[in-house]
């Protein structure tokens, strides 16, 4: 878990007239879970979307596996084995759970052993395997979104607020799933507002504010230092807990 799989160097992103990312420097260590914290509107989602090429970085460099990817198209970035779970889950509601999973399986077929492992993590997906994804509950849709991202081994998972608006039982299932992925040395960049979730799975942490990284370090360090939490996230600390 020493070298960096993903590095952002002075990344700027403009959306229309707005200057959202203002020189983001971020390192995601290989095989670990990096958590991106920050208040609403700090630029966390824009950071993930910029990594995926959904917004073009206007300045700076994004290095993935030692290759610059900031000029590449979204499909090309996805084909580098980066999976993205957006905040709105990004599932295809007209298609069945099975079809959603097949779309993500680049080889065209689903590995049965891996599918059984996913069913173990998220049992409702087995129950609703042939149902239209649009008929699933919010929590089940989130499970499907994460399951689709891990249907095949990926080098990097970008997950945007997977616990937003979910019931505690579903959040626990999500924490368990991320912990298992962590044990399998999967590299994850997790955007999260729920601090207990972030603390439960994160190895490293970066805090964003106004389009910049204002703190980065070990998660354990931040979790144990209430004063630092207050200083970094004072305005939004309650929302994180």
């Amino acid at each position: 878990m020493s070298d960096a799989l993903l590095t952002l160097k002075g990344v700027h992103t403009h959306i229309g007239p707005y200057h959202i990312l203002q020189g983001v420097d971020l390192v995601v260590p290989r095989g670990g879970v990096a958590v991106l914290l920050g208040r609403n509107g700090a630029g966390k989602t824009t950071t993930l979307r910029t990594i995926m090429g959904l917004w073009q970085a206007s300045q700076g460099a994004i290095l993935f596996d030692n290759a610059e990817i900031q000029k590449e198209t979204t499909p090309a970035i996805a084909q580098r084995e980066i999976a993205f779970v957006p905040e709105d889950m990004g599932i295809f509601t007209d298609l069945t759970v099975h079809e959603n999973m097949l779309l993500a399986a680049r080889s065209g077929a689903i590995d049965k052993e891996r599918l059984n492992w996913i069913f173990g993590l998220f049992p409702p997906l087995k129950t609703f395997w042939q149902s239209a994804a649009g008929n699933l509950s919010g929590g089940q849709k989130q499970m499907l979104a994460v399951a689709r991202a891990i249907i095949e081994p990926r080098k990097l998972l970008l997950i945007d607020e997977p616990t937003k608006g979910l019931a505690p039982a579903i959040i626990n299932a999500m924490i368990a799933a991320l912990r298992e992925l962590k044990e399998m040395q999967t590299t994850i960049l997790l955007v999260e507002q729920n601090f207990s979730m972030a603390r439960a799975v994160g190895d490293t942490v970066a805090v964003m504010d106004d389009g910049q990284i204002v703190y980065s370090g070990e998660m354990a360090e931040l979790a144990d230092d209430a004063e630092l939490q207050e200083k970094l996230m004072g305005l939004s600390l309650e929302a994180h807990q």
């Binding site: 959904l54 499909p75 996805a78 957006p86 990004g90 295809f92 509601t93 779309l103 993500a104 065209g108």
Partner: peptide, 23 residues
């Protein structure tokens, strides 16, 4: 599988791109 991708594109082209399909 081709038809399935078309349906995914119809529903949301950006999502399809984020999975890796050249829309």
């Amino acid at each position: 599988p081709f038809g399935r991708v078309l349906q995914a594109i119809r529903e949301n082209a950006f999502r399809a791109e984020a999975i890796g399909y050249k829309v």
